[in-house]
Nucleic acid binder design. Structure first.
Lengths: 210, 210
DNA sequence: AATCCTCGGATTGTTCAACAATTCCTAGAT
DNA sequence: ATCTAGGAATTGTTGAACAATCCGAGGATT
C-alpha cells in the first residue's frame, strides 16, 4: 500500500543521479528531455523539480530552466555552519544506548570500507557517522535537515573524492569522537567534533574555489 | 524585475491565510476550490501545494488531498528541540554589532506593542526577536530553517493567543537575554534563552493536547 | 439493530495539447 | 566590431480529459 506518486519517483530517480555524480553541478535539466526519458508528463517532471528545488539540490532560474545546484565558497561555509550548530549540539546532548551504538556501527562500517579499499563506501560510511550523531537527538525535523545538508554536500564532494585517500584521515577522528561519546565525555566529544568540522571545512574550501 | 511566478504568488497567498489564522489546522484544501477562487489553473495550485508541503505547512494525504498541518504533542517537542539547537548555538556565537542592534530593536518593538496593548504585534515582535537571534550567525540556510520553524509555530499559536497576556511575560526574558548579549556574556545569554525555551515549551504543551 | 456490501459521486493523480512569454542564438545591417 | 531584428527553443500556464482512488449513502444480510 501507499505507492509513492509518479512525481515522487521521478524526484527519487533524479536524486539518485545527483548523488551518483551523473549530473554535475551547473548542468541543465530540460523538462522535455527528462519527460520523455522517463516516460512521464512534463507537468509531472515539473512537480518533481519543485521537490528538488525545495531541497536546494537544484536551482530554478525563472524562464531559463532548472540547473543542478553549484555551491560557491560562501555556500560551503554556510553548510559547515549548519553542521557545526546541529551536530555539535546533538553530540553534547548525548543519546540513548541504541543511538550511541548506531554511531559506533558507523565507525566500524568505515573501518571495514578502509580495509576493503573502497573509497566510495568510505564516503557513505562517513555520512552515516554524522547522520548517526544527529540521530542522537531523536528529532524528526533535525534528521531531515541533516539529510538535506548531506545531500547538498554529496553534490560537490565528487571533486574531492578524486583524491583517493581523502576520507582516510577521518577514520581516527571518528573513532576518538565515538570513544568520548561512549565514555560519557560529552563536552570532550563535542570539542573534537567541532575541531574536525573546522578542519574539514578548510580542506574543502581549499579544494574548491579559493 | 524578476516577477514571481503565478505558482509562487498562490503559495504566498496561502501562506498569508495560514499565518492569518484564516485556515485552521486540519482544514482541507481542495484544488478545484482554490483554483477558481484565485483564478488560476488546477495545475498551478498543485505546484503551490508542493511548495507548502516542502515547508511542512501542509500535508499531503495521497489520493485524499492536502490538509493544513496540525502539530501533535510530539511535533511541539520536536519544534522546540530544533529551536534549542539553533537559537542557543547562535546566541553562544555572538554576532556583529549590527546584528546585536537588530536583536535590541526587536525587544523595543515588543515594548512598543505592549504599550499599545496590541497582542498581535507583540506576537510578531517576539518572532522577530528569535529570528534576530538566529540572524546573528549570518547563515542563509539557518535563517530559512528558522523561518520555516516560526511559520510552523504560527500555525498553532492562534489557540494560545486567545489568552490575552500570553506574550506579556516574555518581555522581561527577552530584555534580560538581550542585555547579556550586549554585555558580551554569551554563555549567560545562552543559558537564559535555553531556560526560556524550556518554559515556553511547557506552556505550549499545556495549552495543547497533553 | 448492527454489520457488511455495493454503487455512485467527488476529488485527486496524471497525461496531453495548446499558446503566450521569455530567453538565447544567429544572421544581417550599420 | 557593435547593434538590431528575427526565429528557434524552452519555460510558464491553461484547459480538458481520463483513470484511480476515496468517501458516503443506501440496501441487503444476519
Amino acid at each position: 500500500m501507499a505507492v509513492p506518486s509518479v512525481a515522487d519517483r521521478v524526484a527519487a530517480e533524479l536524486r539518485l543521479q545527483l548523488a551518483e555524480g551523473l549530473l554535475l553541478p551547473g548542468a541543465r535539466l530540460t523538462e522535455s528531455t527528462i519527460s520523455e526519458e522517463l516516460g512521464v508528463s512534463r507537468n509531472t517532471v515539473r512537480e518533481a523539480f519543485a521537490e528538488l528545488a525545495a531541497e536546494r539540490l537544484v536551482v530554478r532560474h525563472p524562464n531559463r530552466g532548472v540547473f543542478v545546484a553549484s555551491l560557491g565558497p560562501g555556500d560551503i561555509h554556510d553548510v559547515y555552519t549548519v553542521r557545526r550548530f546541529i551536530e555539535v549540539s546533538a553530540l553534547r546532548g548525548g543519546g540513548s544506548p541504541e543511538r550511541v551504538a548506531a554511531v559506533r556501527a558507523a565507525v566500524e562500517e568505515g573501518r571495514a570500507a578502509a580495509a576493503a579499499d573502497d573509497e566510495e563506501a568510505l564516503g557513505t560510511a562517513n555520512q552515516h557517522f554524522h547522520g548517526a550523531i544527529v540521530a542522537l537527538a531523536e528529532s524528526r525535523r533535525l534528521n531531515t535537515i541533516m539529510g538535506q545538508v548531506l545531500a547538498e554536500m554529496r553534490l560537490f564532494f565528487h571533486k574531492a573524492t578524486v583524491d583517493a585517500h581523502f576520507y582516510r584521515g577521518y577514520l581516527d577522528d571518528n573513532e576518538a569522537i565515538c570513544e568520548a561519546l561512549e565514555a560519557g565525555q560529552l563536552e570532550r566529544a563535542a570539542d573534537l567534533l567541532l575541531a574536525y568540522l573546522n578542519r574539514s571545512e578548510q580542506k574543502q574550501s581549499a579544494v574548491h574555489g579559493d
